[in-house]
Nucleic acid binder design. Structure first.
Length: 569
RNA sequence: GGCGUUAUAGCUCAGUUGGUUAGAGCGAACGACUCAUAAUCGUUAGGUCGGUGGUUCAAGUCCACCUAACGCCA
């Protein structure tokens, strides 16, 4: 039995995410977590909401709420949606938690002790009316070059000239419109990532088994241009983790917070501590290599936009701390999912949001389609036609109908109990060999996180059951040799349990229904397929389950395609 | 403007280090079956692998240029 630590990139707090966010990290992470648990491994599956930073403040302001209240509410909303999709987190934390404050301050202190933090003086525009500093794009004014009156502090959109905030004529706050501004000196902490460049580079070079997408992005950041740059880790904001050096105050840093990119990944650790504080579990045995984590395999899931933070920034924090914290062992990254020929767009309301998806169909429909079309090698495409075809064919026709035809046949010809009689013959042996080959391939793909290939293999396993029935035709056999037909159906009924166990990582709700229909709690993995196909003995009662997957009609498809084409109401 | 990614059957995608007649699923046509959610199973048709040129005994697979789509950056 292995110990596996799994984290999914933590979603930002400022709104409900679309399906592209789901398929790029949380969903495949959940698939992997469920599979590893099913194989008997000890799993710690962690996710959280990423709550700090300016966008959270602005979203709260727009909602007319204090930012902490807003974040607490949005966290609940996201937690509920995650549960709706069956995401089986051991803990879904919050980056604003006290645990994360403490750990973030601890890491900053460690980095400072190691000489990896530098204080840098900068000039920033301060707004008296807003009571805060304004990052470049929060200042507007007239462009000195072309006279455009809505130029931003970093660039004029009209003439594309790059600007400095102090260049603007009649500058004003983009938040309040106030012109009561002044340029102030401010000090910030920088993490000297450049000093860690060689260690990071060496470390990345050892990761020869990582997907090319992951390592190529990391190497690009390491080596392009002047190489890995030092980076500011503090901001002049109210909302965030107050800057402290461990438990001590940090002279000159009063009133400042850590920049969101610095505290967010530390939340992976802090969320595990949140879990421990709640359950009494041992969080350090997952994260401290001196306290039991040396045998942990740590796997991260994320979209490609998050790769630089997880291959460089977060490892820089861990390595730079010079303390025995667990580094990631494997990073599985995903490309983007496009929507009907374009991008999903949060701002334009284009595409399907997670809450809407759950309103129109059960989670398993989405889980199956999204995972079987996961954008692993390149950006992939969601179309309603494809979604309808995939779900109807795979789930309703191949799997759902298999369950239906077997249980109903048994009920009508025998009873609602596994029938007695018959024995495995040549065809059954052949089926068992075929299934064994396919299940071993499925295990291999799941182990390697080859999501699409695993889905394809699973589908093949479902098809094998229909092939068997079609070839053996128990409905014909029954007329002349009911005993033989009984043996065939007993095998088919057992196949339903095996399918439920194998399919659970992809479609947990339907699997639970199948097991419940078969009236069994036996979720043992089919290591030995022949034995697994006799788990339900003759005489074991069952009930014909309700329809597992209703088909998506053309009317529904057209209706939804129109509804999600643009602007969210 | 700079950098990068992608371009394979009607659709969504596989194609390992270049090597026999380029694969899968869906869709289509035809056939079988009737237990089942008009479901299932089988057979067949469909591609000059975006274009041009090059390297090689051999290129979808490497190189150059072109075109198109997309992404990132200042």
């Amino acid at each position: 039995m292995a110990r596996i630590l799994i984290t999914s990139a933590i979603p930002y707090i400022n709104g409900i995410k679309h399906l592209g966010n789901l398929v790029g990290s949380q969903l495949p992470a959940d698939l992997y977590a469920r599979y590893m648990r099913a194989r008997g491994h000890e799993v710690m599956f962690i996710c959280a909401t990423d709550e700090h930073g300016t966008p959270a403040e602005l979203a709260a302001k727009k909602a007319g709420k204090p930012v902490d209240e807003f974040c607490a509410e949005m966290h609940e909303v996201q937690a509920k949606i995650g549960a709706g999709f069956g995401l089986s987190f051991d803990h879904f934390g919050r980056s604003s938690s006290p645990q994360n404050h403490k750990l973030t301050q601890y890491f900053a202190g460690r980095l400072a002790d190691e000489g990896l933090i530098e204080e840098v003086s900068e000039q920033q525009v301060y707004s008296h009316a807003d009571g805060r500093f304004l990052p470049d794009r929060y200042i507007e004014g007239t462009c000195p070059n072309c006279g455009y009156d809505k130029a931003r502090g970093d660039q004029c959109e009209n003439c594309t000239k790059q600007l400095d905030p102090t260049d603007l004529i009649e500058p004003r706050s983009a938040i309040s419109g106030s012109t009561d501004l002044e340029v102030r000196d401010t000090k910030h902490l920088y993490l000297k990532q450049s000093q860690l460049k060689d260690r990071l580079s060496e470390w990345i070079d050892t990761k020869t088994d990582w997907p090319v997408l992951t390592t190529s992005i990391a190497k690009k950041w390491l080596h392009d241009g002047d190489g890995l740059q030092d980076r500011g880790i503090t901001r002049d904001l109210d909302w965030g983790v107050p800057v402290k050096r461990g438990d001590d105050d940090w002279p000159g840093m009063e009133g400042k917070v850590f920049y969101v990119w610095f505290d967010a990944p530390i939340e992976y650790i802090a969320a595990t501590k949140e879990w421990a504080d709640k359950t009494g579990g041992d969080w350090e045995s997952w994260w401290r290599t001196d306290k039991g984590a040396d045998d942990v395999r740590y796997v991260q899931f994320m979209g490609k936009d998050n790769v630089p933070f997880h291959t460089l920034s977060f490892p820089a924090t861990i390595m730079g701390s010079n303390a025995p914290w667990k580094l990631v062992d494997y990073i599985k990254s995903f490309n983007y999912l496009n929507y009907d020929g374009g991008q999903f767009s949060t701002s334009q309301g284009r595409g399907i949001f997670q809450d809407q998806a759950l309103e129109i169909l059960p989670a398993d429909y989405w889980r199956w389609w999204l995972l079987s079309h996961a954008p692993e090698n390149s950006d992939s495409e969601f179309t309603w036609e494809n979604f309808q075809a995939g779900v109807n064919k795979d789930l309703a026709d191949v799997l759902g109908n298999f369950v239906s035809r077997v249980t109903k046949f048994c009920r009508s010809k025998f009873s609602e109990a596994v029938p007695n009689g018959g024995a495995f013959g040549e065809t059954e042996k052949a089926l068992i060999d075929d299934l064994t080959t396919k299940i071993r391939a499925y295990e291999s793909y799941m182990h390697d996180m080859e999501v699409r290939k695993a889905a394809n293999e699973l589908r093949g396993i479902w098809v094998a059951g229909n092939e068997y029935l079609q070839a053996e035709a128990p409905w014909t056999v029954f007329k002349t040799d009911p005993d033989k037909a009984a043996g065939q159906i007993r095998l088919a009924l057992n196949l339903i349990r095996v399918y439920a166990v194998l399919s659970a990582p992809f479609i947990p709700e339907a699997s639970a229904k199948m097991l419940s229909g078969m009236n069994t709690l036996d979720t043992s993995w089919p290591d030995d397929v022949e034995a697994a196909l006799t788990a339900l003995p003759a005489g074991h009662s069952f009930t014909v389950p309700e329809v597992l997957f209703a088909k998506i009609t053309d009317e529904q498809r057209e209706d939804w395609a129109e509804r999600f084409a643009g602007t969210r109401d």
